[in-house]
């Protein structure tokens, strides 16, 4: 572009108004150096523009000058030339909104920092909430474990008791002095079966229910020993869970036979013969 072309391009006018783009400003600055005619034209426009501005001058309040000189004389850093600022004051600034917005960084930085902090806080909230949830899960698990441990413990106690009872039963049965007396079912109750373990030396008698029907609530089975043809009360016994174990009955030193009858709850003084379920003779 030669000088005349540049002058008629309109860039100088836009530059004077302060609305030339950065590229146009660069082009113009180069043209001013290159073409004296362009420089003259720019100066002519600048003169009219500055005249326009100067004509709109206003007189400031008189105290501004006094205050200004007061500052200059009292601030030591104003006494001598301070470092030159980065901005080039020589040329008109092309200030666009966007540029300006990047300049007022302070609140933007604060906003950005706040946003970052907020996001950080949210992330931490999330992390800690998850941990808390995990913790709650673990707590629940821990509690259920505690419960199941307790139940296992109580079951294990139960088994221990059972085991002890079994061992006790085993010891009784394994005693060589103990006689095993099977009591098969009588004619009306052929299915019924019970076993008496009797130690004639210690006179201890144990009963094991093999199979007896569950009695009515107001009835109870009663064991009898037949001694020289007469029934001797050996006590009532429990059914249900207890029936699986050996039940210790009353002691007796002499007997030929054992029998079980169904009696009213608490037992009877003499057996009801019609309700005899099982009976067995002592072998030998």
């Amino acid at each position: 572009m030669d000088a005349q072309h540049f002058i008629s391009s309109g860039i100088i006018e836009l530059y004077m108004a302060g609305i030339a783009t950065e590229e146009e400003v660069r082009e113009l600055e180069a043209a001013i150096v290159q073409f004296p005619a362009v420089a003259t034209e720019v100066e002519s426009y600048r003169h009219s523009m500055e005249e326009y501005i100067r004509m709109q001058g206003l007189n400031p309040a008189t105290d501004v000058k006094a205050s200004l000189f007061n500052k200059i004389n009292n601030e030591p850093n104003l006494q001598e030339g301070s470092p030159v600022p980065g901005q080039n004051l020589q040329q008109p600034k092309v200030v666009s909104m966007q540029e300006q917005e990047t300049k007022s960084l302070s609140w933007k930085w604060i906003a950005t920092a706040a946003a970052v902090l907020l996001v950080g806080s949210l992330v931490l909230n999330y992390v800690f909430f998850n941990r808390y949830k995990e913790f709650r899960e673990y707590k629940d698990k821990y509690q259920s474990l505690l419960v199941s441990q307790n139940s296992i413990l109580s079951k294990s106690n139960l088994y221990k008791t059972r085991l002890e009872q079994m061992q006790e039963s085993m010891e009784i049965i394994q005693d060589p002095h103990v006689l095993k007396v099977p009591l098969p079912g009588t004619k009306p109750f052929p299915e019924a079966l019970a076993t008496v373990f009797w130690n004639p030396q210690s006179q201890q008698v144990y009963l094991k229910v093999n199979k007896l029907p569950e009695p009515a609530a107001d009835k109870q089975y009663q064991l009898w020993a037949i001694v020289d043809g007469k029934p001797v009360d050996m006590g009532v016994f429990e059914m249900g869970d207890t029936a699986s174990l050996l039940q210790k009955m009353k002691v007796i030193g002499k007997a030929q036979m054992f029998a079980v009858t169904l009696e009213k709850k608490g037992g009877a003084l003499s057996p009801t013969m019609e309700q005899m379920y099982v009976a067995g003779k002592i072998p030998g």
């Binding site: 030339g81 030159v84 020589q90 600034k93």
Partner: peptide, 23 residues
């Protein structure tokens, strides 16, 4: 304060001051 950065070869003092005031 910034007088030392003023360069008379680049423009008139008034232009320079106007730019400071406007900016």
């Amino acid at each position: 304060r910034y007088l030392d950065s003023y360069d008379e070869r680049k423009g008139r003092l008034f232009t320079w001051m106007l730019n400071i005031a406007r900016n």
